[in-house]
Design a protein around this nucleic acid. Structure first.
Lengths: 200, 200, 200, 200
DNA sequence: CATGAATGAGACTTCATTCAT
DNA sequence: CATGAATGAAGTCTCATTCAT
């Protein structure tokens, strides 16, 4: 049935698909994947329930699409950030900038980390995609770290990155829940400190 | 009739309640809270569906009971560990010992961090309990950190602990998924490094 | 399985059966037959659930037993009342006395009229018993009415009694719900009026 | 999500909702509220179980809808009847006409009187609606009685109407169970007699 | 006799998904 | 393309009844 999924071509149709994705994103964020149902998504998107299944095979499919888009966007932005930052000499400042730039991106992903571990077990596809993407970011980041760390290769960078990534993800969820902007910055400062002291 | 939950008195009955809790724990771990149902839990426990509802109001109730037990046990063990460690002079070694001791405990909680953010939104009770418990551990840990850090009070310890706790939780999930014991130890070494460099 | 029902012989056992009957009577009255369950009855009676089924085949069985007892008691009392009243000459006063005497009895039955029409359809036995008892009272009452109506036989007494019985039953439920004693008496006066004017 | 009850707009959909209501009405009549379940109603309506919950929150909800409709219809018809009858001079004939006209209406409500006392205790909403409706009819009827009773106000009309209403309701159930038309008429004659002698 | 834990059928309810219009 | 009514499988939960102790 995979093939039955239409790719909308008319402008109005494309807008509707976008509405669905936005609605799903918001609801997944607010209430989690398992407490959101397709009827609700369609309602919030202002379209009919049936239309949902014109564009997506099932609920996991729209999740995958969101994951996909955000991952893609983030990867590209990450590349840009790293490019830009490579001119920075002060490593600490560099890291800080990195986090500040990143927070906007990564906080979008926060909702995903919440449910993805469970969803992965049910939908293999999503697990695979997630792992692939993680791997891709890892490569990017490791080459970046190697570059800015002029002296010698960092030992155990593999493991280190695994830990850093996990740490960043988890703390981004934490930060994304803070209301106050100053609080956010304070937390980011601390994270910079955490990562900086760890790596260099 | 809601609260008509029995506390079993006969030995066999207590065993069955335990079976249910163990079965639920395993299934929540394997498949997550939302992909586990009461019938399944009962089946794995070798018990009828009805009995599940003799002992628990609903699925969230057995989750709470598990959370409760593990939290309680861990808190007590944590106290013991801290007591024991307070004799250690080498802070780095101390932290390492702390993590090694802790890993056994905390990895049990891994499954909880997976779903709890979503569950909290649905079941207020669970959120409250979780927060209370987090607070309790925070107090314990902060007094410990203050004690071992003889010179002066650590700045921003509040925020720091928030970040450390988040970091530890997230990385424990990571570590708990590793099969190989040496890998685990390597990761723990790195975490010690991460935390140590951050705090001292 | 009918034969498995024990008739308790020891004093303590008899008391327990009585407790069950009393508890069931109260609960049926308060919440109706279909909203009362056997566990609840046992609990209110202060005995175990299992014991319920030592004495009664099922829930309808205890209902039948209650119906039986009250019907029996009422029939005997009715005979006494009619006997006593037959000396009264003033028919209106006689009717009034009849109702006043009766109210104590019949209000006990109020709860039964509430559910019996539905229960009858499920449990034939109960319908049969109910009809038999109604017939018995009808005979008693009709002979009484014939006796006090010296002149000639009342026309259509059959139908009349059917209507009177229905009317009395329904209004007894009404009266039994009144809290105030004076109100009760006022209603009884009106009922006397209703019936008297109808019959004579 | 509780109140997410659809009001069907398409013709076929409206028909299905009607089927459900008709099926429920018949089943409640035949077997009573507590011996009828939603699956059965759906089946009799030729519809899936799920659809039941598209249109009704639960079993009490469809009961309320039926109660609502019948009450409304009956109230309007009652007004018409009273209007028509107010030209009649012979009070006895008037009452008779009233009952004959009414029997068609009220017998529809018979099923409701059977279970409503019990249902009221479980579902407050239904009790409230019932009381409101009873009150409304009382007002209508009392003004009617006052009008046709030219001489002077009837004493205790309040209590009298309470009794009359109870009496009529109960006897209508009785009459509605009769198969034979002549029997019905005989019973109605007797009821006319009962009420007429009582009131005038 | 008495207990209350245990059973499992069946009721209630939700929701991903389909399909006639 | 779009609708939303309709489906039914599957999950949640209750309770009359049984049975080991």
């Amino acid at each position: 049935m995979q093939q039955n999924i239409r790719e909308p071509k008319q402008k109005r149709a494309i807008e509707k698909k976008e509405s669905l994705i936005n609605a799903a994103f918001q609801l997944f964020n607010e209430k989690g994947f398992y407490n959101t149902n397709s009827k609700e998504i369609a309602k919030k998107a202002g379209v009919s329930t049936g239309l949902f299944y014109n564009y997506f095979n099932d609920k996991s499919d729209i999740f995958l699409e969101i994951l996909n888009r955000i991952s893609e966007k983030n990867y590209l932005e990450l590349e840009k950030i790293l490019e830009k930052l490579s001119k920075e000499n002060d490593k600490k400042q560099l890291l800080k900038s990195f986090f500040i730039e990143n927070i906007k991106l990564l906080s979008e992903l926060a909702f995903i980390y919440k449910d993805i571990e469970t969803i992965k077990k049910e939908y293999e596809e999503i697990g695979k995609y997630r792992d692939k993407n993680k791997q891709r970011i890892k490569i990017l980041m490791m080459s970046f770290f190697n570059k800015i760390n002029d002296e010698e290769n960092i030992k155990n960078l593999d493991i280190k990155w695994e830990i850093i990534q996990t740490t960043i993800d988890a703390n981004y969820i934490l930060i994304s829940k803070l209301e106050n902007k100053d609080d956010k910055l304070k937390f980011i400062d601390e994270m910079v400190c955490l990562i900086y002291n760890y790596m260099f």
